[in-house]
Write a protein that binds this DNA or RNA. Structure first.
Lengths: 231, 231
DNA sequence: GCGTTGATGTCGGGA
DNA sequence: TCCCGACGTCAACGC
């Protein structure tokens, strides 16, 4: 990784066009050639950047850039699209490189995928006699998180969220509408399962005949067989 | 801005739990106290971070962290939520600070707002005889991007996206439901206009009687009268 | 301050 | 590889 602090202006052309006036910024060049332009505020998002795969070419400034006071021009071009980032470097305040090696990567816990896996393994949380049919059941408008059958053999579509919001109820409603048009599947009941269900979402779901189930992630994880865990 | 290259491990607890094993990384501390943990790959998103407003406390490592070889512990806590980021620094390879000042900020072109302005000016892209009524037509649940009339005088609500996705179709559907309840306006037809329309979004739109129109931004911009441009 | 919407979104998973 | 939905989404704008 190369870290350059420099007074510079930046232009991006690609999916949109963007310009950064002359100011002092941090230029981060990663090992894969990607470039990040950071200011001393904002959030974790750079002011401007080029994602890998891309190539970085540096050359002495020429033409209008040189006339404006630039000493060096960086041209970062995406190798997949015609996106291009041009950095006009006016003054380098510091320039250092360091070898970081390959990062072992992030280990996450508590996301929706785990909830889905746990509920699929412990489908009895929905009620006695429930049986899993499949996860990610495909439909024309997207996959249903879990398809299962209740004690009487009726089809049940389950939408899982960490936080149950109105959006999730809308999503499940779309699936149910579509699936209930399929004579092989209909009638399909709906279950909205989440660690936490917002009052508005619960109201909407209930109004549409969708059952709400609150999941206890910690308890479900406790029951979970550690040999089948992702980590 | 402070830039520290260090061998470290990182733990985050908040909306999820995440852990980064010991490795060499860049720690970026911005003027507002926010912290970014970058590796030498990935994209512009850090491996882990804490957004402002937050506070950073550094102290000599203690307990299990010290036993594991850490010399210093950074505790970055959000001042609004109970999110916390803990960096266990094992070895500092470099540590430097620089004053960047305030950034003048980014100037953009080519976002949805521009697409909307162009389509309003060139409403004939929807078909012969179309006439603009107004942009950002207000409804109780939000503004409709464009309201216009077709050749026969019927009302048409247009939702514009750069990328047409299911969300956009849902959004337009909500507007149409509401507007069609208004006897002064009904019947209102729907048009989903985007630079690119995803197959599932097209399927859903078509199923709901919403017409899809693909927009060519470059061509529309070419026709654009530069004297009316925003910049 | 809350809610809604857009984003050069980015990221990960399944087909 | 493409397609699609989640995200510690974030950030801007309107009410």
């Amino acid at each position: 990784m190369r870290l350059v602090v420099a007074r510079c202006s930046v232009d991006y052309a690609g999916r949109l066009t963007a310009h950064l006036p002359l100011a002092t910024r941090l230029l981060m060049v990663k090992a894969d050639g990607s470039v990040l332009v950071h200011s001393d505020g904002g959030s974790y998002k750079p002011l401007n950047w080029m994602s890998p795969p891309c190539t970085l070419l540096t050359a002495p400034a020429e033409g209008t850039a040189a006339e404006a006071g630039a000493v060096e021009t960086w041209r970062v071009a995406s190798t997949k699209t015609d996106d291009v980032l041009v950095v006009s470097v006016h003054e380098v305040l510091s320039d250092s490189s360091v070898d970081l090696g390959v990062d072992p990567g992030l280990v996450k816990d508590g996301v929706e995928a785990h909830l889905q896996r746990l509920l699929a393994e412990q489908i009895e949380h929905l009620g006695s006699g429930y049986a899993l049919v499949r996860r990610e059941h495909p439909t024309a408008i997207g996959p249903v998180d879990i398809l299962c059958r209740d004690a009487s053999g009726g089809s049940v579509a389950v939408e899982i969220k960490r936080r149950g919001d109105i959006d999730g109820v809308e999503q499940l409603t779309r699936y149910l509408e579509l699936m209930n048009r399929d004579p092989h599947l209909a009638p399909v009941a709906g279950v909205f399962a989440a660690q936490e269900i917002r009052p508005q979402a619960r109201t909407l779901a209930t109004d549409r005949g969708i059952r709400c189930v609150v999941l206890d992630y910690e308890a479900m994880r406790g029951v979970d067989d550690p040999t089948t865990r992702l980590f």
